[in-house]
Amino acid sequence: MSSAPAVEVVDLVKRYGARRAVDGLSLTAPAGSVLALLGPNGAGKTTTIEICEGFRHADSGTVRVLGLDPAQTRLRPRVGVMLQDGVGGYPSASALELLRLFASFAARPHPPQDLLEIVGLTSVAGTAVKRLSGGQQQRLSLALALVGRPELVFLDEPTSGMDPQARRGTWDLIRQLRSDGVSIVLTTHFLDEAEQLADSVVVIDAGRVVAQGSPAELTRAGAEGQIRFRAMPGLPLQSLLEELPAGSRAVETEPGRYLVSGDVTPQFLATLTAWCAAQEVLAEDLAVQRRTLEDVFLELTGRELRA
C-alpha cells in the first residue's frame, strides 16, 4: 500500500461556466513526500486540491487519493485538510475547544494541548476563533488538519498571512511530518516555500501543468549558471576558457567586470578561482547566480508569479 501514490490525477478538467479552471491537468504525488503546486492566483491550484479533498467534482478525468475516489467518506479519517481562507470552524468556539472537538472525531488523536503548543497557540488557547489573528487562524487550521494523525495532508496556502517566524516554524513542522511518514500536498505562490519544502514541484498556469520536477531539476534544466566578479581590467580570459569545460564563455562586460557562464558546478567554480590564484588576482564581489523557480516560471509563462 505504501508504494501506491498518495494522489494521482489524470487529465483533470473542471469548468466554471465557459472558463476551464483546470484544463487537462495530470500529476502524481508519491507517498511519503512533499508535492508543491506552484502557480499564481487563479491558476487552478485550489480547484485541483479541492477536487482531491472531495469538495468539488471533476467534469472529466480521474482522481485517486490513497487509491480511492475522493468522494469516498472512508477516506476522511485518513486525510487532513487545511482550507485556504480561515479556519472553517465555529467562530465563537475557542481554539482549544475546536481542536478538542476535531480530536474527538479520531480514535487515536494527538493530545490537543500538545499540538496547540507545537503550533505556538498555547497563549491563545481560550480565545474565540474569530478573535485570532490571520496568522494564528492559519496555525490553528494546520493543527486541525493534523490532530487526527492522518497519513496524507492537503495544505492550501499554509503560510499565507503568517509572520516570518511562524512561517519558518511551519516549514519545520512540515519537514517533520514528512520525516515521520506523512504524505503532503501543498499549494503555494511562494517560490522559496516550494524550493525549501518540496520533493517535487508542479508548476501550474491557467489550469495546466507547465513544468514539473524536483526544485533542483526545474532550476537546472536547460539553464546555464553565471558567475560575476570584479578584478583588474584586461585579464587574459582566453587562458581561462582553455581550463574550463568546452562551451563555457567568459567576457569582460565593462573594464574590470567579468561574466563567466556555463554549466556551473562546484568544480567549475574551483577551476575559476584556481585560475584567478594563478593570475595572482583577487576576485571581488564574486557571485554565483543560479536560476530560481521565479526565473523558470517567468520563462515558461512570460509572467511574474506574484502579480
Binding site: R76, P77, R78, V79, Y90, A93, E97, R100, L101, S104, F105, A106, A107, R108, H110, P111, D114, L115, E117, I118, G120, L146, G148, R149, P150, E151, G169, Q176, L177, D180, G181, V182
Partner: peptide, 27 residues
C-alpha cells in the same frame, strides 16, 4: 516549543457515539 510529537500516521475514526456526544456538547 519544547513539546514534540511523533506524527507517524495512525488514522481511524472515533466511535460514532463519541462523535455524537462531542458534537452535541459543542452545539
Amino acid at each position: 516549543m519544547s513539546t514534540t510529537l511523533a506524527f507517524t500516521p495512525a488514522p481511524e475514526a472515533a466511535p460514532r457515539s463519541r462523535m455524537l456526544l462531542a458534537q452535541t456538547a459543542m452545539e
